[in-house]
Each structure stands twice: as structure tokens, then as C-alpha cells.
Amino acid sequence: MALLRAFLARGFRPAIRLPAVGPMGVFHVETGGCEGCAMEVAALDGAAYALSATGVRFVTTPRLADVLLVTGPLTRGMAPVLEAAWHAMPDPRALVAVGACAIDGGPFGENYAVLGGLEGRAPLDASIPGCPPSPAAIVAGLAGLLGVSGAVASGLSSSA
């Protein structure tokens, strides 16, 4: 996985300072899990959560994204796709792993088809554990990137 490391890892990484104005753009890539984490991210993107009020906006191209949000274990097939998405993002950018699979492979560790989680392969700006984490936990984790306190974030996310 030297390839991925070369693309994602940098010699040093300044503290991520995402733009303070305007919503935070999040590009979500599901890299091959059971879709459970992806469904919880999707729930956030739906009508049940007033997401725009939290300052988070899902975008459909990495070129508009501040955050690359990854769910699922990184399959060998998705590694080049994830690299390409990261490349397409403008600086400053953050990498966030959501769920056990994306963090350390969870139930889907390394094998012939899977590389495993991102931990140890790329510097993660946030890891949101769970199998899957709840939408509230995901919002709280994303809010952490903006320096919003967890209390505020969970207040915002309980709008169901």
C-alpha cells in the first residue's frame, strides 16, 4: 500500500483549519463495507436531520470538498478511486474515517481483496468509531473539525 501512503501521507501536516465561513463541504466515499455506515451518513443527508443548520454540506464532487469522509474497509479496487478523490480536493482538506471498517478494517481486515482500514495508512484528522456510529455521533465528529463543541453538535443533531 505504498501507493496510497505516498498520495495521502505528507511529511508534515499543519493543523487543519477549514474555512470558517460557509458550510463545510463533505465528499463521502464508501470504500466497500456493508453499507451500514453509509446508510447512517445518508440519514444525515436526509430530511430527518436539519443538516444545513450544522454547517455541514454533502457535495457530489471532491473538487468542492473540504472533508473526505470514508466509510467501509478500503478494498483494493477502491484504493485508486480514493486516491483520485483526495487528489481532486483543494487544500486545506481533512480525512475522516467513519466506522470500524474505515478505521481499522473492523470485521473486514486485510485479505486478497481488502487492504483494511485507513489507520496507519494515512493521517486521519478524525476517527468516528462504531459499527456503525449513529448519525449524531457522526455530526459530533465532523463538528470537532470545525472546533464546535460536542455539546453544541449533539444539540444540533437531535432534530429528528
Binding site: 464508501e30 466497500g32 463495507g33 454533502f58 457530489t60 479496487g77 477502491m78
Partner: peptide, 10 residues
Amino acid sequence: GPADGGHRAP
């Protein structure tokens, strides 16, 4: 796809 921001398996 496989990555179009659509919260789906790739």
C-alpha cells in the same frame, strides 16, 4: 460511480 458522493456501496 464508483464514487459519486451518493452514500451507496461502490
